[in-house]
Simulated assay, not measured.
Amino acid sequence: MTTADAVRRRLGLGRLLPLGEAADGAWLAEQAAETVLRSVATGVPGVAPGRLRLALVDPDAAGPPAVPPPPSALPPGPLRIEADFAAVAWEPLPVAASVLRASLFTAAENLLDLRVSEVDLLVTDVLDAGPEIAQGAPPPEVQPAAPKGPVGWAASGAPGVAHLTATLGTAVHFAPDHVRVEVATASGHRPLEVVRAVREAVTAALADGRPVSVLVTAVEA
């Protein structure tokens, strides 16, 4: 893989969002979250989702992470979903917005384990006919990485891990003060449960007390 390919993969992840609480030492790629949330939004009747982003509600109030974070990761703190959408003319806009907001809140909590406290919606168009959902560009492909060494095999065997990934360089990054593991979660498993299982397995394999952080780069449907 060339340097340019590596940069494109890294940028394709979007922001690295804090997953769970600070003590969980976990992050979720914005692109992975956006794929799940967009799928949910597309299922809301009479709504055509547009731009969708996630960010910290208050970056200045975010707390320090419990373990060294991945490069450019956001610190732990409540998140805001910002979404644009078009809606059909015969549905009252407040009703459509309310259903969409509730769907995004529920998906963020129950499917992604993200601490979302705000959902900001912007109506960009009113449609005379039912929305035609644009397919748009597919999300960047996250390539599986083969497990290597005791730590890699321990992480890949944790419940709910679909496979390891290596978007930031290697699937398992060893540093003197921590170890970082990249994974994709399997369908039917909540990301935070997978993260905790990975941390437990890797901690046991390390046996040297180094803290473990986990980056989830993909959430399989």
Rank of each mutant, 00 (worst) to 15 (best):
A86P: 07
A26G: 03
V99K: 05
V181P: 00
A73C: 04
E109P: 06
P75A: 04
D177S: 05
D128W: 13
E220D: 09
P71H: 06
A102M: 11
W27T: 04
N110D: 14
G130Y: 15
G152I: 05
R38W: 10
P71F: 09
P94Q: 07
A184G: 05
P211V: 02
R199G: 05
L215T: 12
G160L: 09
G136M: 13
T203P: 06
A29N: 05
V95C: 13
A6T: 14
T3A: 15
V195G: 07
N110F: 11
D58K: 03
A197S: 15
A66M: 01
L215P: 07
A175G: 02
Q143T: 15
S187R: 13
G188R: 10
V7G: 02
V40Y: 08
L112W: 10
P18N: 11
V212D: 00
V202L: 12
S98P: 02
A89T: 14
P45K: 07
T203Q: 07
D24M: 03
V95D: 05
R51K: 12
S103N: 04
E21V: 10
G169Q: 09
P78G: 09
R199E: 00
A175Y: 02
D125R: 15
W153K: 01
T203Y: 01
P65I: 08
A66Q: 05
A154C: 07
G77P: 03
L56C: 11
P139H: 13
L112V: 01
A83H: 05
P70S: 07
A96T: 04
V195P: 11
G188S: 09
A154S: 00
P140E: 14
A201K: 11
L16I: 12
L54K: 06
